[in-house]
C-alpha cells in the first residue's frame, strides 16, 4: 500500500455565446452634463464582474478613464433588452453592444468638441485622461467636462448612443447537422498532478497548470479571478460533487454543505494560470468568453492523472475514493 503519483493532460475548446446565436443584447450610453457616462443595460452581474468590464469597455471606446463611467443595469424599467448572463455570452454580447453605443456617443462628443475648437471632428482624438485634442497638435484641446456642458446647455446636443448586438440564429440542417454554433472559441490545456492513496482511494491534487487562450484579457486581475475559481470548480467536479451519489438511484442526495462535498480552503491544489490572447474577429477588443470553459479541462486532466498514478480508469464522475477502491480491487482480482 502506498501513495502513488501521476499526472494527466487535457486540451479543450469552448464556444462563446448562446449556441446557434439568436441571443440579442442592447445597450444605451449617455453623458451627464459634466461628462460622466452612463451605460444602461439589463444584463446581470453574477459576481464575475460584468459591471466593471462594461465600464472599462465603455471608457476605452469613449476615451475617458473608467471611473468616469457609471453602470446602471438590470432594471427592466430603464435597461434595454439583454438575453441574460449565461453561455459565456456576457462580455462578448453586451460588450459589443456597449462599444456600438459608446461609438455613437463618442461621435456626437467629438462633433461638439469640433464646434468648440472650430476644427473638423475627424481631426480630433481623445487622450484617455478626459480631454479631446487635435491630432498632432495636443496643445489645442478641450476637456470632456466642458464639451458635455456645451452639449447640454449651449448646443442642445445629446451625447448618447444606442448599441445592439445580435448574431443571427443558425438552424441546424436536419440530416447532416450543418450549422454555425458559435463565432469564436476559447481554448485551454491543463496538466494535473495527483497523489492517490491506494489504500483509501483518496486523491490529492498537488498541482494544476492551466493554459487558457481567451481572446483578450480585458482586465487581467478579473480574468485571473475567474480562471482560478473555475479551476477550483473543475477539480471539485472531478472528485467531489454530485447531488445523486448513486445515480441513477435517487437516494443519498446531499441537502446541505456538510453532505454536498466541495474542496475547502485546506484542500487546494497549487494552481498556475497562464493566459494567451488570440483576439477573436468579432469579440469586444477581441475578447472571448472564458467563464465556463475554465472549469472544464481539470476534470479529464485529473481523471487521466489518477490512471497514471494507479492504473485504473474511473469513467464515472465524480472520481470518489469508493470508485477507485472498487476499481483497484477489480484490477487485483484480474
Amino acid at each position: 500500500m502506498a501513495i502513488r503519483r501521476g499526472r494527466g493532460v487535457a486540451a479543450i475548446n469552448y464556444p462563446t455565446g448562446m449556441n446557434l446565436g439568436g441571443d440579442p443584447t442592447q445597450a444605451l450610453v449617455h453623458s451627464t452634463p459634466t461628462g460622466n457616462f452612463m451605460v444602461t443595460l439589463s444584463s446581470v452581474d453574477l459576481g464575475q464582474g460584468m459591471k466593471q468590464i462594461m465600464a472599462q469597455i465603455c471608457a476605452e471606446t469613449i476615451g475617458v478613464p473608467t471611473d468616469r463611467v457609471i453602470i446602471d443595469t438590470a432594471d427592466t424599467d430603464t435597461g434595454p433588452h439583454c438575453m441574460g448572463t449565461f453561455a459565456s455570452r456576457g462580455t462578448h454580447r453586451a460588450g459589443n453592444a456597449v462599444i456600438q453605443a459608446a461609438k455613437e456617443a463618442r461621435q456626437v462628443m467629438l462633433e461638439v468638441a469640433a464646434e468648440e475648437l472650430e476644427v473638423n471632428a475627424s481631426d480630433l482624438e481623445t487622450d484617455g485622461q478626459g480631454n479631446i485634442q487635435v491630432k498632432g497638435a495636443p496643445q489645442k484641446s478641450i476637456s470632456i467636462f466642458d464639451v458635455a456642458l456645451s452639449a447640454h446647455f449651449k448646443r442642445g446636443r445629446s451625447i448618447s448612443g444606442r448599441g445592439m448586438f445580435l448574431i443571427p440564429r443558425s438552424y441546424p440542417e436536419k440530416e447532416t447537422g450543418a450549422m454555425k454554433p458559435s463565432t469564436c472559441y476559447a481554448h485551454a490545456c491543463t496538466v494535473a498532478e495527483v497523489e492517490v492513496d491506494d489504500e483509501t482511494g483518496e486523491v490529492t491534487v498537488l498541482t494544476v497548470k492551466n493554459v487558457f487562450e481567451i481572446g483578450r484579457a480585458l482586465n487581467p486581475k478579473m480574468v485571473e479571478q475567474q480562471l482560478v475559481g473555475g479551476s477550483w470548480m473543475g477539480i471539485s467536479h472531478a472528485l467531489y460533487e454530485t447531488t445523486e451519489p448513486y445515480y441513477p438511484n435517487r437516494d443519498h442526495g446531499g441537502t446541505d454543505f456538510n453532505q454536498y462535498l466541495m474542496p475547502g480552503p485546506g484542500d487546494l491544489a497549487q494552481t498556475e494560470i497562464i493566459v494567451l490572447e488570440r483576439p477573436s474577429a468579432d469579440g469586444p477588443f477581441g475578447a472571448k468568453g472564458p467563464g465556463e470553459m475554465c472549469a472544464n479541462p481539470q476534470i479529464p486532466a485529473v481523471a487521466n492523472a489518477v490512471f497514471d498514478a494507479v492504473g485504473v480508469r474511473i469513467d464515472t464522475l465524480p472520481i470518489t475514493p469508493e470508485r477507485i477502491l472498487r476499481a483497484l480491487k477489480a484490477q487485483a482480482a484480474g
Partner: peptide, 14 residues
C-alpha cells in the same frame, strides 16, 4: 456552467 460541453470534454479527453 458549460453544460452540453463539460461532461463531453471529460469523456473526449479521457
Amino acid at each position: 456552467r458549460g453544460f452540453g460541453v463539460t461532461i463531453g470534454d471529460f469523456a473526449l479527453e479521457v
